[in-house]
């Protein structure tokens, strides 16, 4: 089987599942989880973009011998940032959901109807 199919395919499958959960979920926590699964899929996709055939991790622990055959380090650095940002978003979302549960007494999104014209 093709490596691209496995890596890209599974990452994108996670993204699809995340979007599906987020748009069909009725429970607020479920929606948050959907967004989180989507983010995870995206992060996996970005890391797999960085792979270069035959490359190893960009850590030269045998220094002065530098081998040229390494994977792209930039997507890894970017994903690190993206993961932290995802965590922050999730924490904020959880806090809002906890307050919603306290004030509305429910976590069902269909019951959040304060703001309708």
């Amino acid at each position: 089987m093709d490596a691209g199919l496995i890596f890209y395919g599974s990452a994108i499958f996670l993204m699809v599942m995340g979007v599906f959960i987020a748009i069909t979920g009725r429970h607020l926590i479920k929606i948050l989880l959907g967004i989180d699964v989507f983010d995870t899929g995206l992060n996996l996709l970005i890391v797999s973009f960085g792979y270069i055939n035959g490359g190893t991790a960009p850590i030269f622990s045998k220094y002065p011998n530098i081998f040229k055959n390494v994977v792209d380090p930039v997507p890894q650095a970017l994903v690190l940032t993206a993961i932290v940002i995802g965590v922050a978003e999730m924490a904020m979302g959880l806090a809002i959901v906890m307050q919603i549960k306290e004030k509305f007494g429910t976590c069902n999104i269909a019951k959040l109807k304060e703001l309708k014209w």
Binding site: D2, A3, G4, F7, Y8, S48, F49, Y51, I52, N53, G55, P58, I59, F60, S61, Y63, I66, K68, V70, D72, P73, V74, Q76, A77, L80
Partner: peptide, 28 residues
């Protein structure tokens, strides 16, 4: 296509000159 991109642009610079410029063996 998976894995068929050459190392280029800023990434190539980091891998080649990373240790010289910043001294860390972990490029990331």
């Amino acid at each position: 296509p998976f894995g068929e991109r050459p190392l280029r642009g800023v990434a190539a610079h980091y891998v080649e000159n990373g240790i010289k410029e910043e001294g860390a063996t972990n490029i990331v």
